[in-house]
Design a protein around this nucleic acid. Structure first.
Lengths: 197, 197
DNA sequence: CCTACCGATCGGTAGG
DNA sequence: CCTACCGATCGGTAGG
Protein backbone atom coordinates (compact mmCIF):
# COMPACT_ATOMS: atom_id res chain seq x y z
CA UNK A 1 0.00 0.00 0.00
CA UNK A 2 1.17 3.50 -0.73
CA UNK A 3 0.88 4.46 2.91
CA UNK A 4 3.60 2.04 3.91
CA UNK A 5 6.22 3.17 1.43
CA UNK A 6 9.25 4.96 2.80
CA UNK A 7 8.93 8.12 0.75
CA UNK A 8 5.45 9.22 0.03
CA UNK A 9 4.44 12.51 -1.45
CA UNK A 10 1.82 13.54 1.02
CA UNK A 11 -1.09 15.83 0.44
CA UNK A 12 0.64 18.64 -1.40
CA UNK A 13 -1.20 21.77 -0.35
CA UNK A 14 -1.02 20.66 3.25
CA UNK A 15 2.69 20.01 3.11
CA UNK A 16 3.27 23.40 1.58
CA UNK A 17 1.26 25.05 4.34
CA UNK A 18 3.24 23.13 6.94
CA UNK A 19 6.47 24.42 5.47
CA UNK A 20 5.20 27.99 5.52
CA UNK A 21 4.16 27.62 9.13
CA UNK A 22 7.45 26.09 10.22
CA UNK A 23 9.36 28.71 8.25
CA UNK A 24 7.43 31.52 9.92
CA UNK A 25 8.42 30.23 13.34
CA UNK A 26 12.05 29.75 12.44
CA UNK A 27 12.35 33.08 10.63
CA UNK A 28 10.80 34.78 13.64
CA UNK A 29 13.07 33.07 16.14
CA UNK A 30 16.40 32.98 14.34
CA UNK A 31 15.98 35.45 11.52
CA UNK A 32 15.80 34.72 7.81
CA UNK A 33 19.53 34.50 7.15
CA UNK A 34 20.33 32.35 10.15
CA UNK A 35 17.59 29.90 9.29
CA UNK A 36 18.73 27.14 6.96
CA UNK A 37 16.72 25.09 4.56
CA UNK A 38 17.85 22.15 6.63
CA UNK A 39 16.25 23.70 9.73
CA UNK A 40 12.97 24.05 7.93
CA UNK A 41 13.14 20.58 6.42
CA UNK A 42 13.80 19.02 9.79
CA UNK A 43 10.90 20.91 11.36
CA UNK A 44 8.48 19.25 8.94
CA UNK A 45 10.27 15.89 8.82
CA UNK A 46 11.72 16.14 5.38
CA UNK A 47 15.17 15.62 3.94
CA UNK A 48 17.23 18.68 3.24
CA UNK A 49 16.55 18.90 -0.48
CA UNK A 50 12.82 18.31 -0.28
CA UNK A 51 11.49 21.77 0.53
CA UNK A 52 12.61 22.72 -2.97
CA UNK A 53 9.91 20.48 -4.32
CA UNK A 54 7.44 23.02 -2.93
CA UNK A 55 9.41 26.26 -3.31
CA UNK A 56 11.89 27.30 -5.93
CA UNK A 57 14.12 29.26 -3.55
CA UNK A 58 14.50 30.24 0.07
CA UNK A 59 13.42 33.74 -0.88
CA UNK A 60 10.15 32.33 -2.14
CA UNK A 61 9.53 30.83 1.28
CA UNK A 62 10.03 34.20 2.89
CA UNK A 63 7.70 35.74 0.39
CA UNK A 64 5.04 33.15 1.19
CA UNK A 65 5.35 33.77 4.93
CA UNK A 66 5.25 37.53 4.60
CA UNK A 67 2.33 37.59 2.20
CA UNK A 68 0.30 35.15 4.26
CA UNK A 69 1.00 37.25 7.34
CA UNK A 70 -0.29 40.37 5.62
CA UNK A 71 -3.36 38.58 4.34
CA UNK A 72 -4.27 37.23 7.76
CA UNK A 73 -4.07 40.56 9.52
CA UNK A 74 -5.66 42.51 6.71
CA UNK A 75 -8.62 40.16 6.70
CA UNK A 76 -9.08 40.33 10.47
CA UNK A 77 -8.79 44.09 10.75
CA UNK A 78 -10.74 44.62 7.54
CA UNK A 79 -13.68 42.74 8.99
CA UNK A 80 -13.55 44.84 12.12
CA UNK A 81 -13.43 47.98 10.03
CA UNK A 82 -16.48 46.94 8.04
CA UNK A 83 -18.76 46.32 10.95
CA UNK A 84 -21.55 48.58 12.17
CA UNK A 85 -21.09 50.93 15.08
CA UNK A 86 -19.71 54.26 16.17
CA UNK A 87 -16.23 55.29 15.04
CA UNK A 88 -15.09 54.34 18.49
CA UNK A 89 -16.66 50.90 18.36
CA UNK A 90 -15.01 50.25 15.04
CA UNK A 91 -11.65 51.54 16.21
CA UNK A 92 -11.71 49.41 19.32
CA UNK A 93 -12.62 46.34 17.29
CA UNK A 94 -9.73 47.06 14.93
CA UNK A 95 -7.30 47.43 17.81
CA UNK A 96 -8.38 44.11 19.21
CA UNK A 97 -8.21 42.35 15.86
CA UNK A 98 -4.72 43.68 15.16
CA UNK A 99 -3.42 42.69 18.57
CA UNK A 100 -5.05 39.28 18.49
CA UNK A 101 -3.33 38.42 15.24
CA UNK A 102 -0.03 39.84 16.43
CA UNK A 103 0.00 38.05 19.74
CA UNK A 104 -1.71 34.75 18.99
CA UNK A 105 0.34 31.59 19.30
CA UNK A 106 0.28 31.19 15.55
CA UNK A 107 0.06 34.69 14.22
CA UNK A 108 2.98 36.11 16.16
CA UNK A 109 5.51 34.21 14.09
CA UNK A 110 4.04 35.60 10.91
CA UNK A 111 3.97 39.05 12.46
CA UNK A 112 7.53 38.92 13.71
CA UNK A 113 8.76 37.78 10.32
CA UNK A 114 6.80 40.56 8.68
CA UNK A 115 8.16 43.17 11.06
CA UNK A 116 11.79 42.10 11.17
CA UNK A 117 12.66 40.11 8.07
CA UNK A 118 10.88 41.87 5.23
CA UNK A 119 14.02 43.68 4.18
CA UNK A 120 15.41 40.38 2.96
CA UNK A 121 12.74 40.16 0.29
CA UNK A 122 13.73 40.59 -3.32
CA UNK A 123 12.67 43.76 -5.05
CA UNK A 124 9.59 42.30 -6.74
CA UNK A 125 8.28 40.68 -3.57
CA UNK A 126 9.00 43.82 -1.58
CA UNK A 127 6.89 45.82 -4.01
CA UNK A 128 4.04 43.36 -3.55
CA UNK A 129 4.31 43.73 0.20
CA UNK A 130 4.30 47.51 0.08
CA UNK A 131 1.14 47.42 -1.99
CA UNK A 132 -0.56 45.22 0.61
CA UNK A 133 0.73 47.39 3.41
CA UNK A 134 -0.63 50.56 1.83
CA UNK A 135 -4.06 49.01 1.69
CA UNK A 136 -3.78 47.96 5.30
CA UNK A 137 -2.72 51.39 6.45
CA UNK A 138 -5.58 52.97 4.57
CA UNK A 139 -7.98 51.06 6.82
CA UNK A 140 -6.44 52.74 9.85
CA UNK A 141 -6.21 56.16 8.28
CA UNK A 142 -9.90 56.02 7.55
CA UNK A 143 -10.71 54.96 11.09
CA UNK A 144 -8.69 57.87 12.45
CA UNK A 145 -10.47 60.26 10.11
CA UNK A 146 -13.81 59.13 11.48
CA UNK A 147 -12.60 59.52 15.05
CA UNK A 148 -11.58 63.06 14.34
CA UNK A 149 -14.92 63.79 12.73
CA UNK A 150 -16.69 62.55 15.84
CA UNK A 151 -14.35 64.63 17.99
CA UNK A 152 -12.60 61.79 19.76
CA UNK A 153 -9.10 62.60 18.65
CA UNK A 154 -7.49 65.91 17.82
CA UNK A 155 -5.00 64.86 15.21
CA UNK A 156 -5.64 62.31 12.49
CA UNK A 157 -2.42 62.91 10.55
CA UNK A 158 -0.17 60.20 9.22
CA UNK A 159 2.17 60.66 12.15
CA UNK A 160 -0.60 59.78 14.56
CA UNK A 161 -1.19 56.57 12.64
CA UNK A 162 2.53 55.81 12.71
CA UNK A 163 2.72 56.35 16.46
CA UNK A 164 -0.25 54.04 16.86
CA UNK A 165 1.28 51.36 14.67
CA UNK A 166 4.50 51.64 16.64
CA UNK A 167 2.79 51.21 19.97
CA UNK A 168 0.80 48.24 18.66
CA UNK A 169 3.61 46.47 16.87
CA UNK A 170 6.00 46.93 19.75
CA UNK A 171 3.79 44.64 21.82
CA UNK A 172 5.42 41.76 19.97
CA UNK A 173 8.59 42.58 21.88
CA UNK A 174 7.16 42.49 25.36
CA UNK A 175 3.83 40.66 25.47
CA UNK A 176 3.93 37.26 27.11
CA UNK A 177 0.84 35.04 27.08
CA UNK A 178 1.04 34.45 30.82
CA UNK A 179 2.21 37.93 31.71
CA UNK A 180 -0.91 38.79 33.69
CA UNK A 181 -2.42 41.03 31.04
CA UNK A 182 -4.92 39.90 28.47
CA UNK A 183 -4.90 41.12 24.92
CA UNK A 184 -8.26 42.73 25.54
CA UNK A 185 -6.87 44.73 28.45
CA UNK A 186 -3.98 45.95 26.35
CA UNK A 187 -6.33 47.02 23.59
CA UNK A 188 -8.50 48.89 26.06
CA UNK A 189 -5.52 50.62 27.58
CA UNK A 190 -4.20 52.01 24.34
CA UNK A 191 -7.68 53.07 23.34
CA UNK A 192 -8.00 54.94 26.63
CA UNK A 193 -4.67 56.63 26.11
CA UNK A 194 -5.48 57.88 22.62
CA UNK A 195 -9.12 58.79 22.78
CA UNK A 196 -10.68 61.53 24.84
CA UNK A 197 -12.89 60.05 27.48
CA UNK B 1 59.39 55.27 6.74
CA UNK B 2 56.70 53.31 8.48
CA UNK B 3 54.01 55.34 6.79
CA UNK B 4 54.99 54.03 3.37
CA UNK B 5 54.89 50.35 4.22
CA UNK B 6 52.16 48.27 2.67
CA UNK B 7 50.70 46.93 5.86
CA UNK B 8 50.78 49.26 8.79
CA UNK B 9 49.03 48.76 12.06
CA UNK B 10 47.28 52.08 12.36
CA UNK B 11 46.19 53.79 15.51
CA UNK B 12 44.55 50.90 17.29
CA UNK B 13 41.69 52.45 19.21
CA UNK B 14 40.68 54.38 16.14
CA UNK B 15 40.68 51.33 13.93
CA UNK B 16 38.60 49.46 16.43
CA UNK B 17 36.09 52.29 16.53
CA UNK B 18 35.97 52.34 12.74
CA UNK B 19 35.16 48.66 12.68
CA UNK B 20 32.37 49.13 15.21
CA UNK B 21 30.92 51.96 13.18
CA UNK B 22 31.08 50.06 9.91
CA UNK B 23 29.63 46.98 11.58
CA UNK B 24 26.73 48.97 12.97
CA UNK B 25 25.84 50.19 9.52
CA UNK B 26 26.10 46.77 7.93
CA UNK B 27 24.24 44.98 10.72
CA UNK B 28 21.50 47.58 10.45
CA UNK B 29 21.22 47.31 6.69
CA UNK B 30 21.70 43.60 6.06
CA UNK B 31 21.20 42.04 9.46
CA UNK B 32 23.81 40.35 11.62
CA UNK B 33 23.74 36.93 9.97
CA UNK B 34 23.81 38.22 6.42
CA UNK B 35 26.75 40.49 7.15
CA UNK B 36 30.08 38.77 6.64
CA UNK B 37 33.40 39.54 8.22
CA UNK B 38 34.57 40.21 4.69
CA UNK B 39 31.89 42.90 4.29
CA UNK B 40 33.09 44.62 7.42
CA UNK B 41 36.76 44.29 6.49
CA UNK B 42 36.14 45.78 3.08
CA UNK B 43 34.21 48.69 4.57
CA UNK B 44 37.27 49.71 6.58
CA UNK B 45 39.85 48.74 3.93
CA UNK B 46 41.22 45.67 5.59
CA UNK B 47 41.87 42.14 4.44
CA UNK B 48 39.35 39.51 5.41
CA UNK B 49 41.25 38.11 8.38
CA UNK B 50 42.24 41.42 9.90
CA UNK B 51 39.15 42.32 11.90
CA UNK B 52 40.05 39.38 14.12
CA UNK B 53 43.08 41.32 15.27
CA UNK B 54 40.62 43.67 17.00
CA UNK B 55 37.80 41.27 17.92
CA UNK B 56 37.93 37.66 18.87
CA UNK B 57 34.69 36.70 17.17
CA UNK B 58 31.88 38.11 15.09
CA UNK B 59 29.65 37.91 18.13
CA UNK B 60 32.01 40.21 19.96
CA UNK B 61 31.56 42.80 17.24
CA UNK B 62 27.81 42.63 17.68
CA UNK B 63 28.24 43.00 21.40
CA UNK B 64 30.40 46.08 20.90
CA UNK B 65 27.86 47.68 18.59
CA UNK B 66 24.93 46.93 20.85
CA UNK B 67 26.63 48.10 24.03
CA UNK B 68 27.90 51.29 22.44
CA UNK B 69 24.40 51.96 21.14
CA UNK B 70 22.93 51.58 24.60
CA UNK B 71 25.60 53.79 26.14
CA UNK B 72 25.05 56.58 23.65
CA UNK B 73 21.31 56.75 24.12
CA UNK B 74 21.45 56.26 27.87
CA UNK B 75 23.88 59.14 28.22
CA UNK B 76 21.82 61.47 26.05
CA UNK B 77 18.50 60.71 27.69
CA UNK B 78 20.08 60.56 31.12
CA UNK B 79 21.35 64.10 30.74
CA UNK B 80 17.93 65.28 29.70
CA UNK B 81 16.39 63.52 32.68
CA UNK B 82 18.82 65.19 35.07
CA UNK B 83 18.16 68.75 34.01
CA UNK B 84 16.09 71.30 35.88
CA UNK B 85 12.51 72.04 34.96
CA UNK B 86 8.95 70.88 35.28
CA UNK B 87 8.12 67.22 34.71
CA UNK B 88 6.88 68.25 31.32
CA UNK B 89 10.08 70.09 30.41
CA UNK B 90 12.11 67.09 31.40
CA UNK B 91 9.87 64.67 29.52
CA UNK B 92 10.00 66.74 26.36
CA UNK B 93 13.78 66.95 26.57
CA UNK B 94 13.99 63.19 26.98
CA UNK B 95 11.73 62.61 23.98
CA UNK B 96 13.92 64.84 21.88
CA UNK B 97 17.13 63.23 23.07
CA UNK B 98 15.84 59.73 22.38
CA UNK B 99 14.64 60.63 18.92
CA UNK B 100 17.77 62.53 18.03
CA UNK B 101 19.94 59.54 18.82
CA UNK B 102 17.59 57.19 17.05
CA UNK B 103 17.31 59.20 13.88
CA UNK B 104 20.74 60.80 13.54
CA UNK B 105 22.85 59.81 10.57
CA UNK B 106 25.19 57.95 12.87
CA UNK B 107 23.03 56.80 15.73
CA UNK B 108 20.34 55.17 13.64
CA UNK B 109 22.59 52.29 12.66
CA UNK B 110 23.36 51.60 16.28
CA UNK B 111 19.69 51.89 17.12
CA UNK B 112 18.55 49.61 14.33
CA UNK B 113 21.09 46.98 15.32
CA UNK B 114 19.98 47.28 18.91
CA UNK B 115 16.33 46.95 17.99
CA UNK B 116 16.55 44.17 15.44
CA UNK B 117 19.71 42.16 15.97
CA UNK B 118 20.05 41.83 19.73
CA UNK B 119 18.59 38.35 19.71
CA UNK B 120 21.78 37.13 18.03
CA UNK B 121 23.82 37.97 21.11
CA UNK B 122 25.20 35.16 23.20
CA UNK B 123 23.68 34.59 26.60
CA UNK B 124 26.29 36.51 28.59
CA UNK B 125 26.16 39.56 26.32
CA UNK B 126 22.38 39.46 26.28
CA UNK B 127 22.36 39.58 30.07
CA UNK B 128 24.61 42.64 29.97
CA UNK B 129 22.27 44.32 27.54
CA UNK B 130 19.19 43.61 29.61
CA UNK B 131 20.88 45.17 32.61
CA UNK B 132 21.61 48.33 30.64
CA UNK B 133 18.11 48.34 29.26
CA UNK B 134 16.53 48.10 32.68
CA UNK B 135 18.47 51.16 33.77
CA UNK B 136 17.36 53.00 30.69
CA UNK B 137 13.73 52.13 31.16
CA UNK B 138 13.89 53.24 34.77
CA UNK B 139 14.65 56.76 33.52
CA UNK B 140 11.41 56.76 31.61
CA UNK B 141 9.37 55.17 34.33
CA UNK B 142 10.46 57.88 36.72
CA UNK B 143 9.60 60.61 34.22
CA UNK B 144 6.13 59.14 33.78
CA UNK B 145 5.67 58.96 37.55
CA UNK B 146 6.43 62.67 37.82
CA UNK B 147 4.02 63.46 35.01
CA UNK B 148 1.28 61.63 36.82
CA UNK B 149 2.08 63.43 40.04
CA UNK B 150 1.74 66.76 38.27
CA UNK B 151 -1.52 65.59 36.69
CA UNK B 152 -0.39 65.58 33.09
CA UNK B 153 -1.04 61.93 32.39
CA UNK B 154 -3.61 59.57 33.84
CA UNK B 155 -1.75 56.33 33.69
CA UNK B 156 1.93 55.85 34.48
CA UNK B 157 1.92 52.06 34.37
CA UNK B 158 4.52 49.95 32.63
CA UNK B 159 2.21 49.47 29.69
CA UNK B 160 2.09 53.20 29.11
CA UNK B 161 5.87 53.23 29.00
CA UNK B 162 5.86 50.32 26.58
CA UNK B 163 3.39 52.04 24.28
CA UNK B 164 5.59 55.11 24.37
CA UNK B 165 8.74 53.15 23.58
CA UNK B 166 6.92 51.48 20.73
CA UNK B 167 5.79 54.74 19.21
CA UNK B 168 9.27 56.21 19.55
CA UNK B 169 11.25 53.23 18.31
CA UNK B 170 8.94 52.69 15.38
CA UNK B 171 10.10 56.01 13.96
CA UNK B 172 13.22 54.19 12.80
CA UNK B 173 10.99 52.42 10.30
CA UNK B 174 9.45 55.46 8.70
CA UNK B 175 11.45 58.61 9.43
CA UNK B 176 13.39 59.98 6.49
CA UNK B 177 15.76 62.93 6.99
CA UNK B 178 14.24 64.85 4.09
CA UNK B 179 10.70 63.75 4.73
CA UNK B 180 9.42 67.22 5.50
CA UNK B 181 9.22 66.67 9.25
CA UNK B 182 11.93 67.61 11.69
CA UNK B 183 12.80 65.49 14.67
CA UNK B 184 11.69 68.33 16.90
CA UNK B 185 8.26 68.35 15.29
CA UNK B 186 7.88 64.64 15.78
CA UNK B 187 8.84 64.95 19.43
CA UNK B 188 6.33 67.72 19.95
CA UNK B 189 3.60 65.76 18.25
CA UNK B 190 3.94 62.70 20.43
CA UNK B 191 4.14 64.87 23.51
CA UNK B 192 0.92 66.55 22.49
CA UNK B 193 -0.76 63.23 21.96
CA UNK B 194 0.17 61.82 25.34
CA UNK B 195 -0.08 64.80 27.66
CA UNK B 196 -3.17 66.67 28.57
CA UNK B 197 -3.01 70.19 27.22
C1' DC C 1 10.03 13.47 -2.00
C1' DC C 2 14.78 11.15 -1.14
C1' DT C 3 19.75 10.42 -2.33
C1' DA C 4 23.93 12.10 -3.36
C1' DC C 5 26.30 15.73 -4.53
C1' DC C 6 28.44 20.41 -6.07
C1' DG C 7 30.37 25.04 -5.98
C1' DA C 8 30.52 28.92 -3.21
C1' DT C 9 31.00 31.10 0.93
C1' DC C 10 31.87 31.72 5.72
C1' DG C 11 34.09 32.32 10.44
C1' DG C 12 38.23 31.72 12.09
C1' DT C 13 43.46 30.66 12.50
C1' DA C 14 48.73 30.07 12.01
C1' DG C 15 52.62 32.27 10.87
C1' DG C 16 54.87 36.08 9.70
C1' DC D 1 47.62 43.70 9.95
C1' DC D 2 48.35 40.58 5.67
C1' DT D 3 48.78 35.94 3.42
C1' DA D 4 47.24 31.63 2.77
C1' DC D 5 44.46 28.40 4.21
C1' DC D 6 41.02 25.01 6.59
C1' DG D 7 36.83 22.66 7.96
C1' DA D 8 32.11 23.33 8.07
C1' DT D 9 28.00 24.73 6.21
C1' DC D 10 24.81 26.41 2.91
C1' DG D 11 21.46 26.97 -1.09
C1' DG D 12 20.39 24.49 -4.69
C1' DT D 13 20.19 20.53 -8.30
C1' DA D 14 20.10 16.00 -11.10
C1' DG D 15 18.26 11.77 -11.24
C1' DG D 16 15.34 8.60 -9.65
Amino acid sequence: MAASRKSVIKDEPNRRAEIVRAASRLFAEKGYSATTIRDIAKAVDMQSGSPFYHFKTKHDMLRAVVMEGMEIITRAVGEAAARDGTPRDIFDAMLLAHLEQLLAEDGRHFAATLLHESHHLEAAALAELIEQKDAYEALWQKALRELKRSGEIEDDSHVTRLFLMGALNWTVQWYRPNGGRTVKQIARQISGMLLKS
